Computed example of a mutant assay.
Amino acid sequence: MHGPANGPFYAIYYPMLAAIGVPANLVAIIILSRGRCGLSQCITYYPVAIAVTDFLVMVTAVILNRIGGIYFRYSVLSTTPGCAVSTVLVYATRDGSVWLTVAFTLDRYVAICCQRLKARYCTEKTALLVIGLVCTLSYVKNIPFYFTYQPLYILDGVPWFCDIMSSYYSLPTWQAYDWLDHILTPFLPFLLILILNALTVKHILVASRARRRLRSAENHGDAEMANRKRSIVLLFTISLSFLLLWVTYVGHFLYVRITGEAYFTGLDFNDPHFMLQETTNMLQLLSSCNNTFIYAVSQTKFRNELKKVLLFPFSIFTSCFKLHGIV
């Protein structure tokens, strides 16, 4: 997120994204927290944590950073300190969401493919520990970004907007940090999710062949197998969505590195370089908005709970009318 977007398209896109993403993530948090979606408590912790970080991404990246930059251009968030703090929060919540997806993928890999380790690793205590560690490290890792910005200009003694310092592209220390940042998000998560999903699919295929050979096993559709199937579908849909929506971000980083161009921080919003950069941001932010819809499509019990939540206000009105003898 290297500068506030402008123009009619961005002015419409980001408010719509916030209008959908904020309530969608809140609904996901409410439904998943109730534990009525047929998933074990250990599995449930990860989607809940992902939904919370996605909600924070909507608040920090979409509402404060993008919408604030469009509609409240000269607010306190547009000053250089405000902009720098906002950027750190954006990157921290983004990294938290990404690495929680990795953590969820690893948890399901262990549960499905590593039966000896499953009893020790796939527990509620481990899930909470991993989630806390991921969130803490996400914020610590991004604090240095605060010191990479300088004012775009100074007006009446007030520094406005964030411009990346030229030393960020020349000093070896900052170059190493930039590479580390992009390796940790999203290159390493990409690699880990691809490898873990490939190993999980391989294990499932081998196990399925073994079950076909044992015809008696086909008639034992126990609750554990049903729970595993739901978690596998959830895992693969979330992972695939992540990979598709982040691939342009990876491509843009490689483009910047190969061509030697800097990230766009100016105010020419018709510049093709800016349009490419902003497209990667738009798709990246969209990835923090769509998990609720993934749950609704892939999880029958989640759909049923979603219907209850959506119909709840109407149920209250109906009950009130009946109480007063109107209906």
Score class of each variant (00 low, 15 high):
Val98Gln: 00
Tyr249Glu: 12
Tyr263Cys: 15
Val76Glu: 04
Val250His: 08
His220Ser: 14
Phe317Pro: 05
Phe293Leu: 04
Ser319Ile: 08
Glu224Pro: 02
Leu32Arg: 05
Leu128His: 01
Ile238Glu: 08
Ala28Lys: 14
Ile70Tyr: 09
Gly251Phe: 09
Leu192Tyr: 09
Leu323Gly: 15
Ser298Cys: 08
Ala11Ser: 12
Leu234Asp: 01
Lys307Phe: 09
Met58Trp: 09
Arg209His: 12
Phe274Leu: 06
His324Val: 15
Thr101Val: 07
Leu26Gly: 11
Ile316Ala: 10
Leu205Glu: 06
Asn219Val: 07
Ile326Val: 06
Ile164His: 01
Phe312Lys: 02
Pro272Asp: 00
Tyr263Asn: 10
Leu17Gln: 08
Pro313Gln: 03
Leu117His: 11
Thr292Ala: 06
Ile131Asp: 01
Ala119Thr: 06
Thr123Ser: 07
Cys135Asp: 11
Lys308Ala: 02
Arg215Gly: 08
Glu124Tyr: 12
Ser241Gln: 10
Val327Phe: 10
Met16Glu: 05
Arg120Gln: 13
Cys162Tyr: 08
Pro313Gly: 05
Leu133Lys: 08
Gly68Asp: 01
Gln277Cys: 13
Ser75His: 03
Val158Ala: 01
His182Ala: 10
Leu285Val: 09
Phe147Pro: 01
His220Ala: 11
Lys202Asn: 14
Arg212Gly: 11
Asp156Ser: 12
Ala5Gly: 04
Arg230Cys: 10
Leu17Lys: 08
Gln277Val: 08
Phe72Cys: 04
Thr300Tyr: 11
Ala24Thr: 03
Ala5Tyr: 10
Leu155Pro: 12
Cys113Ser: 10
Tyr45Pro: 02
Asn6Ala: 09
Phe274Arg: 02
Gly96Lys: 15
Asp178Ser: 15
Thr279Phe: 10
Leu184Thr: 14
Leu245Phe: 14
Gly266Pro: 13
Asn227Tyr: 10
Phe236Leu: 02
Cys320His: 07
Arg73Asp: 05
